[in-house]
């Protein structure tokens, strides 16, 4: 008995209340939050921009100061730019991408699922998709304009084509990653064909489909702005293009800022959708 007490006294020093906890040494970036580091980097970059403008290292024509861009946002918001208000430019762009996304999602998911399920569907749709998907959308924009005119139809069609392929291909990949045991289990519970599709195949493919939609929006934004630069009289891309022709660099900055904010908001929305629709992703 007295032995035990002595040993315990040797092991646990009375001065230390908290034990010295240890952890396995990690490798790579690890799990720690990077938010503070990222914020600090942003502050450093903004300060560098402000300093460069302030010290006059680069002519104002090429690089306006941050505060000038801020004032310009107010001016463009009040007075509009290049024949339309800021709201009209932004809503023209948003309408195009929203309409295209709706069409691409509504057609890409069923066609992709069908391609994953049916050999004939895969054979038929593979040919056109594999042919046009690697092409940069701007390569066939002139063709769209010749066929469909300069209006909204050609731009929305271009965006649909750009966004369709990633959504369709990811839906197909979702079906292919479906474990056969899950299908067999549902069959032995009496699932009929359409019940398999609705209750098993579609939800199983949902994580992949959402990833495809996120990629689709990424491609969509890039294509949208480029299409507006070339052929449009409304939209954020058009605003940037006309500002650059008048060397209004601050307005160019405003346009880029708006695109960045919109793209970020869309990406965030899909992420939130992912967190609500597929909280089980990667857990089973």
């Amino acid at each position: 008995m007295s032995d035990t007490i002595k040993t315990a006294g040797l092991l646990v020093r009375p001065t230390q209340d908290q034990p010295n906890t240890v952890d396995m040494k990690g490798f790579g970036a690890g799990e720690g939050s990077t938010l503070l580091i990222s914020l600090a980097t942003a502050v450093v970059l903004l300060t560098a921009w402000w300093l460069v403008a302030r010290l006059g290292l680069v002519p104002r024509l090429f690089l306006p100061a941050p505060q000038e861009v801020l004032t310009q946002i107010g001016t463009v918001y009040r007075d509009g730019y290049a024949g339309a208000s800021l709201g009209e430019h932004v809503s023209a762009s948003l309408f195009r991408i929203a309409a295209a996304a709706a069409i691409a999602i509504a057609s890409g998911i069923p066609i992709g699922l069908l391609m994953g399920l049916n050999r004939w569907a895969k054979g038929i749709f593979d040919t056109p998709i594999e042919f046009y998907w690697p092409l940069p959308p701007l390569a066939y924009l002139p063709l769209m304009i010749i066929w469909l005119g300069i209006g909204e139809t050609s731009k929305v069609t271009l965006l649909v084509l750009a966004m369709f392929a990633p959504i369709c291909l990811s839906a197909q990949a979702g079906v292919r990653s479906l474990p056969i045991e899950r299908i067999n289990a549902a069959r032995s519970l009496g699932a009929r064909h359409w019940q398999l599709l609705v209750s098993i195949v579609l939800p199983s493919a949902l994580p992949e489909i959402l990833t495809g939609i996120r990629i689709g929006f990424g491609v969509g934004w890039g294509t949208l702005v480029a299409a507006e630069l070339i052929a449009s009289n409304r939209g954020i891309g058009y605003m940037i293009m006309s500002a650059s022709q008048f060397l209004a660099t601050d307005v160019v900055f405003v346009g880029i800022g708006i695109i960045a904010a919109c793209a970020f908001a869309f990406s965030l929305a899909v992420r939130i959708l992912e967190a609500t629709l597929v909280p089980w992703k990667g857990k089973i």
Binding site: A185, S188, G190, P203, V278, K283, I284
Partner: peptide, 19 residues
């Protein structure tokens, strides 16, 4: 001839639906 609800199956790997 085909799978059906008259024969229940329990698999080695659990095949529960995660959603």
């Amino acid at each position: 001839t085909r799978p059906g609800a008259d024969r229940g199956v329990v698999f080695q790997k659990d095949t529960l639906l995660p959603w």
